[in-house]
Design a protein around this nucleic acid. Sequence first.
DNA 1: TAGAGTGTTCGATGAATTGCGAACTGATTC
DNA 2: GAATCAGTTCGCAATTCATCGAACACTCTA
Lengths: 105, 105
Amino acid sequence: MGHRASPQHSDPRDVPVETVFAALADPVRLAIVRQLAGSEDWSRACGSFDVPVGKAGLSHHFTVLREAGLVEQRDEGARRVNRLRRDEVERHFPGLWRLALATGD
Amino acid sequence: MGHRASPQHSDPRDVPVETVFAALADPVRLAIVRQLAGSEDWSRACGSFDVPVGKAGLSHHFTVLREAGLVEQRDEGARRVNRLRRDEVERHFPGLWRLALATGD
DNA sequence: TAGAGTGTTCGATGAATTGCGAACTGATTC
DNA sequence: GAATCAGTTCGCAATTCATCGAACACTCTA
């Protein structure tokens, strides 16, 4: 029977810019966001990212990204798949993706 | 005799974007930056900002802002005056000021 | 030169963050 | 149904961060 509780999301319009900056200030979360940016929407499960933390830490980082309004998650069978909220975030924080995703060469 | 040691600055081009995000993720530092943005260059001494921290904390926050390449400081007599590095930062992190200075209404 | 003003540094403290392993839930597969 | 896979939650240790008061250094003024 039971469903799994759907993850709780924030609307980017309700998120203060400090929260967005704090979310992206962590190297693990920035790596997640960058890998997500190079992937198709809903194509990546949480465990599929190349980051140096265990799954408990990973779960925490996705919570932070969700609450910052940067990532959306959806359950798909046993897996939880992700997408970057490209358009909503770009509308409310124009230029943020350009900054966050720049390689910094 | 003795001079006072000039503050040490980072070139915005050498600063990773995580560091910039971390600097701006703190509400006190964001308030400083916003007040600085509304002031003429070199017109504001460190102690002139309306933020709810003592001077020890204030000194720390200015160090963080300097090392993030966001603020420049210069000694002027007994006072240390500040300016926002508007152009250099805008060149290397285009759109950052627009994000950081937006009122979020 | 004594005092006031401005800002830095030090040491301590408390809070928040990050990380891990273990136990747990739900979904899939055998 | 049993084993497995994906992810969450809990409890804990380690680290970092923000903050304060006190002591210090430097500059200006009286």
